[in-house]
Amino acid sequence: MSAVIERVAPLRWTAALLAALGLRGRTLVIAVPMLWLLIFFLVPFLVVAKLSVSEPAIAMPPYLPLVERDGARMTISLSFENFGYLFDDPLYIKAYFFSIRLAFFSAVLTLLIGYPIAYYIARSSEARRSVLLMLVILPFWTSFLLRVYAWQGFLRSNGVINNFLLWTGIIDQPLVMLQTNFAVYLGIVYTYLPFMILPLYANLVKLDEALLEASADLGGRPLPTFFHVTLPLSMPGIIAGFMLVFVPAIGEFVIPELLGGPDTLMIGRVLWNEFFSNRDWPTASAVAIAMLIALVIPIMILRTAQQRVEEE
């Protein structure tokens, strides 16, 4: 008994020390992720927010400091003009909606492709399941950039696909696939598919087989069973997967840049333009902040949908 107490003692000492500092175990557990968020999300966000209200200048760095000291006088100048631009020029709004639309349809496509795959994996034997999951995650082992470049090789007019189609005689002129929105959809769906499959799989694998049997027993053929039982019960997985694809796809830059054509007007590219071509860091930051705020809306919609589904 006393041995136990002795062994526990150091633990209690630490606990007491932390309590003296106003920290309890639970606070501490929360503190780690909080700190993480603080350092890797809030701080960069504040830096960008600060930039977005600065005034651009030909300088190094290319904006004026917010705070200026002139002897005892200190002036803080915030410029909201950068946000004004975003509404002056329909380009930004158009880019925003274009990005949302593209991300939305990409997510829908990813869902349509990912669902059967996730379903198949979830219904496979345990041994095969882990192999299949491995295959889903496998692409992550090579560089994302490399894989997108590989698609260029597939899609270009003298690339693998065109050469094959020309060879078979299905077409006699190479199809223009690279630098089109089609290629962007393809790239996004391809890249984000695992993010759709994994949450769907996690959900579907929990689905009680007895419910499917019950449905069949009550006269439900496979298709009605799917729509009335499987689909509604996998809603949390669908929403989670949708969010994991839709949200990052909105801000996607690399895929539209490498696979997209000139008219793939994604907000990520607009941001890139502001930053690099215009070297207007403040406006670029304003675009980023506005995008973040605008993103909150679809995310909130999805979140509430998810909560509603989960409550049921």
Binding site: P56, P90, L91, K94, A95, D263, L265, V270, N273, N278
Partner: peptide, 19 residues
């Protein structure tokens, strides 16, 4: 200059994207 620069970038993006 900065103003012309901005104008050109804007025209350029519009011309490129057709928006």
């Amino acid at each position: 200059d900065a103003r012309t620069d901005r104008l050109i970038t804007k025209l350029w993006t519009r011309a490129k994207t057709g928006q």
